[in-house]
Nucleic acid binder design. Structure first.
Length: 1063
RNA sequence: GGCCGAGUGGCGAAAUAGGCAGACGCACAGGACUUAAAAUCCUGGGUUCCGAAAGGGGCGUGCGGGUUCGAUUCCCGCCUCGGCUACCA
């Protein structure tokens, strides 16, 4: 009976832990070090757990178990991110309430997680859909709603760090006198504009199929991320959170976090802070009557009351300064290159820009209207697809460049986005690749004017850019003929030579034009991107280096009221409302007038009214319009009359799924608190999260949103750290088993009736499932847009054939058909997906091998962060290891579970002790660095030795079981009990090693000659160089190798190696 | 197109303040046990050349260079694969 039987052991110990509340977090003990270890909680989908989930969960579980044994108090909770579309979609289909589906899925997930033996404190379980939980989600929303961002506030937080900029209560917002003069309603409207949660009408991604509006990040390639439905852009009133106010802090405060650099970088890129200037270009009153006189900014004339000329306007600006909001007489642009203002040869507005109507001349109106119409229907995908040939239309209108009084034509084009900067740009085709592409593809071509002469070094680099963009051979030959340039940079010569050798290639027409333009005009050999250079053709600024020029002209523009320094973020404010049912309702009311129409004024629910729960609904079908689902709610839910008699209507949007996951790490600390979202004392004790593990797919959004909420709470004094997650680790994706794929044509075997063409896949004998055509080498194959295999050369559709390992063999770098070595085979592991049929279900692994084997295998596959393919045989391997551990300690031939007779209570021999202590050292180190794969190797090596011992001292085996226990806790508990343990081993002290026992008395020193290994000598560990060198010179192989040569040098690395350098 | 990461045996991988490449596991091959199989245990192996063997030599960490007594590790250039991103002025 007592073979290793996971199915018997595992439920037994899971029941024990539950019964004894082994992993319940006790009351906080200030005397103990704390450790808060968090997994990214899952969305409980109907499909159940995926093998990707236990990867991170096992890693954190090991860390927790290890640290408990090291005497720390550990907080390790689990919960459910349970709002979201799938449950609602299921409700639409079947009428099942999302709450029912959600509860059922949670049940499944919980059972599965428990079957893996994770040491969660289940008393802390929560779901974002619990009214007890989302009560506080709503409460935090009200905090955000109650906050405005004071960008100039200087303050020192509880962390002792000085900051500029703070979220403050709306009651502290200074009200400008002119607003105050207009009465209370005006003040309230003014406040509402400044809140961190505000309403905004904006074009949004309306997805008719889902009946909802999607956030930009939920739209992938112009289709909905979920369901792949088409998406249109329509304007809609939305709630937004002013995350951009925190852009700087979200970027800079990443610096001190122990996060992977790549994730930090992704967040910084996402935030995309850029510094530049806003500049106004005059377009005259109503865009007409545009008159230019010869004067420019540097020589303003006297002020006229009604600016009717450019000079008057300049003069008035010199007096009034730069207005907060641009008036109708200007186009405000944003640029990061104010130093290229003199090179602006045209301007571009986003098609949606409000000034377009004013600027469009009668002759151009039809074209402009048509273009705008077309642009409004375009999804983002269409816009990017047309990227290669930039489209645009001339408005017929012009604006005046404030720095030189030049008249520049104004275009509209959708390569300029309304949502970034001011939705308008000045185009400098000489120094901006996009502007250049646009200018060169107009007919007639738009002028290009260079205003920066790059440094010599950048001339060379400019060439590199041209080489990459244009016909390389000519450029490369030209370069090689110019030793001055080539010799300055060896990489340059190499590149040029390579290009000449390989004959280069032709790129798109635009790139060629771009190149010609540059090649013929040396003054245009410029860096396209920022680079050190000096101004030319820029009036009084000529000769100024770029950086100096930027700050100088920005200051000058500000002084003359024409521009100002500006910062922009790629990051947009967070679109926070959804039109769905299954989300948190907003705790807000709209005031209604006597006719039942919203007045635009808002009221909030009292804290005591929270949670605002979802109304019961008769059906879950989307409204089919952009109207939110909740607008179909019962009247009793929708309307109420305030004590002062005002009629109120509820906000009918719901919050996005991100809301609940923004703060769950806080609630875990104090999940039962009915008086506060978290007890302040407990918050100080447990936060921040010490280790946060999850998939890299949340690198940007979830982590950025949580950090944002946390910072608002920090500013408002509710949490004491500026950052929620101190250390972050991303586990790598687990792919399906490696697959060998061959490709064949669909069926070219000649049809008996004569016709042979089968390129369309219909004629011929073969079919897609039973292809009979010629094999095609994998190198000839590529994927089309729908992911089908096609022949690179002709686009002919091919059939894919799964091959077994026996059918292929390795040849050089690639795999080929075993009997057709000329046919290359693709060998790859793919993402697990239902459609591919390569999904591994953890339940079946537990059923066949046990939870300990699954855990061990997931950790043994490779480094935690790496992407790795699954292998069922690998599971079998670690399972064999556990069985060997079992047999080594138990007597598997006995009828009951008892110790192996070889396990005895005797004094261990020194080699046994040494092996144990080395293993302790290595495993401890590996656990500290999350190197679980190597820790398992070390335990295997230990076992390989121990199985050879006829006597296995208990005092060796007990610490070994403790070392194994974080990895494979069930079998470890069972063995621990057998070795005399009376309670769980979860709190046994972690074994320590004796430094004296991990050092060897004699060591092997490799001896090299000229860096090549020639011998190994065994010496006393303390031997000095002379002794070792003498010993080495006595070695036969060394003697013969040294014969007739002169030793010029001897390199000795203490304890590592000896190297004779000879001639 | 941009950014990030990775390329080491048949496969998953180890080893990097530069110092014995391939630990550990899988798969494979041979052997033991067995009536047989499974399970288990033992043995073997990067590759190539010389040798009957013992043994010895060459080549080997994607490719091409460089620095060094010595490079999987550092530097330059290139190729391939994967992930993220997508006109952000």
């Amino acid at each position: 009976m007592p073979r290793y039987d996971a199915k018997r052991l595992e439920p037994k110990w899971q029941a024990y832990w539950e019964e004894h509340q082994t992993f319940a977090t006790g009351p906080f003990d200030p005397a103990k070090e704390k450790m808060y270890v968090l997994d990214m909680f899952p969305y409980p989908s109907g499909a159940g757990l995926h093998v990707g989930h236990p990867e991170g969960y096992t890693a954190t579980d090991i860390v927790c178990r290890y640290n408990r044994m090291k005497g720390k108090q550990v907080l390790h909770p689990m919960g459910w991110d349970a709002f979201g579309l799938p449950a609602e979609e299921y409700a639409i289909k079947t009428g099942t309430h999302p709450a029912v589906t959600t509860a059922k899925n949670i049940e499944t997930f919980k059972r599965q997680l428990k079957s893996l033996g994770f040491s969660y404190d289940w008393n802390r379980e929560l779901a974002t859909t619990d009214p007890d939980y989302f009560r506080w989600t709503q409460w935090i929303f009200l905090q955000i709603f109650d906050t405005w961002y004071d960008a100039s506030c200087e303050w020192t937080g509880p962390d002792g760090v000085k900051r500029i900029g703070r979220g403050r209560p709306i009651s502290e917002l200074p009200i400008p006198p002119d607003v105050a003069a207009n009465g209370e309603a005006a003040v309230r409207r003014y406040q509402d504009q400044q809140r961190l949660a505000y309403q905004h009408e904006a074009p949004v991604n309306w997805c008719p199929a889902l009946g909802t509006v999607l956030a930009n990040e939920e739209v992938v390639d112009g289709k909905s991320e979920r369901g792949n439905h088409s998406v249109e852009r329509i304007p809609l009133r939305q709630w937004l959170l002013r995350i951009t106010a925190y852009g700087d802090r979200l970027a800079t405060e990443l610096d001190n976090l122990a996060w992977p650099e790549s994730i930090k970088l992704m967040q910084r890129n996402w935030i995309g802070r850029s510094e530049g200037a806003e500049v106004d270009f005059w377009i005259g009153v109503e865009g007409s009557g545009l008159r230019v006189e010869g004067k420019t900014m540097s020589s303003p004339s006297t002020l006229n009351a009604e600016p009717s000329t450019f000079n008057d306007w300049l003069a008035s600006r010199a007096q009034t300064g730069f207005p907060r909001e641009p008036g109708d007489d200007v186009l405000r642009i944003y640029t990061t290159r104010p130093d290229t203002l003199f090179g602006a040869t045209y301007m571009v507005l986003a098609p949606e820009h409000p000034a377009v109507d004013r600027l469009t001349t009668p002759e151009q109106r039809a074209a402009v209207e048509a273009y705008r119409q077309q642009a409004s229907f375009k999804s983002d995908l269409d816009r990017t697809e047309l990227a290669k040939t930039k489209s645009g239309v001339f408005t017929g209108g012009c604006a005046i460049n404030p720095v030189n009084g030049e008249k520049v034509p104004v275009w509209i084009a959708d390569y300029v986005l309304i949502s970034y900067g001011t939705g308008a740009i000045m185009a400098v085709p000489a120094h901006d690749m996009r502007d250049c592409e646009f200018a060169l593809t107009r007919e007639p071509r738009l002028p290009i004017k260079a205003v920066v002469r790059p440094s010599d070094r950048f001339l060379v680099e400019g060439h590199v850019i041209i080489l990459k963009a244009g016909p390389r051979v000519d450029a490369a030959k030209m370069l090689l003929a110019d030793p001055l340039r080539v010799d300055r940079d060896p990489g340059m010569r190499q590149l040029a030579e390579t290009v000449v050798k390989t004959d280069g290639w032709q790129e798109a027409q635009a790139a060629e034009e771009f190149f010609k333009c540059y090649a013929n005009h040396p003054e245009l050999w410029l860096p396209v991107e920022d680079g050190p250079g000096a101004a030319i053709n820029s009036g009084k600024y000529n000769g100024l280096p770029t950086a100096e020029f930027k700050s100088k002209i920005t200051a000058d523009l500000a002084a003359s009221g024409l521009g100002r320094k500006a910062v922009n973020y790629r990051l947009r404010d967070w679109l926070f409302s959804r039109q769905r049912y299954w989300g948190e309702p907003f705790p807000l009311w709209h005031e209604l007038d006597a006719y039942g129409q919203p007045t635009g004024l808002l009221r909030v629910d009292a804290e005591s009214a929270l949670p605002i729960t979802l109304p019961e609904m008769a059906d879950f079908k989307p409204t089919g319009t952009p109207e939110p689902m909740l607008s179909k709610a019962p009247e009793s839910w929708l309307y109420q009359t305030a004590p002062d008699g005002t009629k109120l209507k509820r906000e009918t949007n719901t919050m996005p799924q991100w809301a609940g996951s923004c703060w769950y790490y806080l609630r875990f600390v104090d999940n039962k608190n009915a008086a506060a979202f978290i007890d302040p004392q407990l918050e100080k004790q447990w936060l921040p999260v010490d280790l946060y593990v999850g998939g890299a797919e949340h690198a940007v959004l979830h982590l950025l949103y949580s950090r944002f909420w946390h910072k608002v709470l920090f500013d408002r004094g509710h949490v004491h750290t500026a950052e929620p997650f101190q250390r972050l680790v991303n586990q790598g994706m687990i792919l399906g088993e490696v697959e060998f794929t061959g490709y064949r044509r669909l069926g070219l075997r000649p049809d008996p009736n004569g016709s042979e063409s089968a390129a369309d896949g219909k004629a011929g004998v073969g079919t897609e499932s039973q292809p009979t055509g010629e094999w095609v080498s994998a190198s000839e194959v590529t994927d089309d847009d729908d992911g089908n295999a096609i022949l690179k050369a002709t686009g002919e559709r091919l059939a894919t054939v799964k091959l077994s390992l026996d059918a292929v063999k390795k040849s050089g770098d690639s795999f080929v058909l075993a009997d057709r070595p000329d046919v290359r085979i693709e060998s790859r592991a793919y993402k697990m997906s239902k459609s591919r049929g390569n999904v591994i279900n953890p339940d079946s692994v537990v059923e066949n091998y046990g939870a300990d084997s699954l855990r061990l295998y997931e950790m043994f596959m490779g480094p935690l962060e790496a992407v790795k393919p699954w292998s069922m045989q690998g599971v079998e391997g670690v399972s064999r290891f556990l069985a060997r551990v079992w047999r080594t300690i138990t007597d598997d031939r006995a009828d009951d579970v008892r110790l192996n007779p070889a396990v005895q209570d005797t004094t261990p021999a020194e080699p046994q002790l040494r092996l144990l202590h080395k293993t302790i050292k290595a495993v401890t180190h590996d656990f500290d660095t999350l190197g679980f794969n190597t820790s398992i190797s070390r335990l295997m090596e230990f076992m390989n030795e121990v199985t050879n011992w006829s006597v296995r001292p208990i005092s060796i085996m007990r610490p070994f079981v403790l070392l194994l226990s974080p990895l494979a806790p069930h079998v470890a508990e069972e063995l621990w009990q057998l070795l005399g343990g009376t309670t769980t081993l979860a709190y046994e002290p972690w074994p320590t090693f004796d430094p004296k026992l991990v050092e060897d008395a004699v060591i092997d020193v490799p001896v090299q000659i000229n860096g090549k290994l020639r011998a190994k000598i065994t010496v006393d560990a303390k031997a000095d160089q002379a002794t070792i060198e003498a010993a080495a010179r006595r070695e036969d192989s060394i003697i013969s190798q040294l014969e007739g040569k002169t030793v010029v040098k001897v390199v000795y690395v203490p304890g590592r190696l000896l190297n004779f350098v000879v001639k």
